[in-house]
């Protein structure tokens, strides 16, 4: 399929000595599209992202990023490809000995992208876009989780990638920080026209970001669909997810009433 940013075909993965996590996963992402992968904890959502970026090796199946089968690439070729793919970890995973600015600038400096002035300008733009410029000289240990998550997003987008993979970007955030981050992610997607694969257990976040939602169930990904279609889906697991969502909403609403 031409123009496909990422595609996964019959992906299978098992951690050594454990049950199979992913049995038969298939999907594809088009330019500018956002695919939200939902599911309960331990269903292999994060593992799927780790497989996509090459941190784990699949037992079977084909992963294509920007038209290239990642299994056929050598280390140098794959590292070159990674310049066009951003990744946001659930824990922000910023380098603790570097400031927020240095963390965001790291990929640009390592890959020799532009001179000092261009690097400063690009990092400044990214930090401004994510509303964290005032924290640029601070170290990760001295800022809040919300700021760290935004810095991680800034680092993922700094190379102007065609695809950004995000693992639970809103996990651990309060409601305001969560809403701000989701709005910023939507903004980045709109401005940069970047494709995204986002893993979350937060169905509401999936609705707010729009795009298609794929539910990971017993190691298989259900056909991606939009939020309304998913809500009307007859699958018992999807119904269970929505019941969970209603219960969570009720629990959050109680203290306010």
């Amino acid at each position: 399929m031409s123009g496909v940013i990422a595609s996964v075909h019959n992906l299978r993965f098992t951690y050594p000595g454990q049950e199979t996590v992913l049995r038969r996963v298939n999907f594809h992402v088009l330019p500018g599209q956002i695919l939200v992968i939902c599911g309960l904890s331990g269903q292999g959502k994060s593992t799927l992202l780790r497989l996509l970026i090459g941190l784990e090796k699949p037992d079977a199946g084909v992963i294509r990023l920007l038209g290239k089968d990642i299994a056929t690439l050598n280390e140098v070729e794959f590292n070159d490809l990674k310049r066009e793919v951003g990744f946001v970890f659930q824990s922000p995973a910023l380098i603790s000995t570097k400031t927020i600015f240095e963390n965001v600038a790291l990929p640009l400096i390592y890959h020799n992208v532009g001179d000092e002035e261009e690097i400063r300008s690009r990092v400044d733009n990214a930090l401004e876009m994510l509303l964290i410029k005032e924290f640029q000289h601070q170290y990760p240990a001295s800022v809040s989780l919300g700021i760290l998550k935004r810095a991680a997003v800034a680092r993922a987008m700094i190379m102007r990638p065609k695809l950004i993979l995000m693992d639970e970007p809103t996990a651990g955030l309060d409601r305001i920080s969560r809403a701000v981050l989701l709005a910023l992610i939507a903004n980045i997607r709109r401005i940069n026209h970047v494709s995204m694969i986002l893993v979350t257990h937060d169905l509401l976040a999936a609705r707010e970001l729009g795009g298609e939602i794929g539910v990971l169930k017993e190691g298989e990904l259900l056909q991606p669909m939009n939020f309304e279609q998913l809500k009307n889906c007859q699958d018992s697991f999807v119904e269970y997810l929505f019941r969970q969502l209603e219960q969570e909403a009720a629990m959050t609403a109680e203290p306010q009433s």
Binding site: G54, E75, N79, D80, F87, L94, I95, L106, M159
Partner: peptide, 16 residues
């Protein structure tokens, strides 16, 4: 760094 996934983060950026 390994425990905090900082080394994995470097790998995802194409940094050896």
């Amino acid at each position: 760094m390994k425990v905090q996934q900082e080394i994995d983060a470097l790998k995802t950026m194409g940094v050896d």
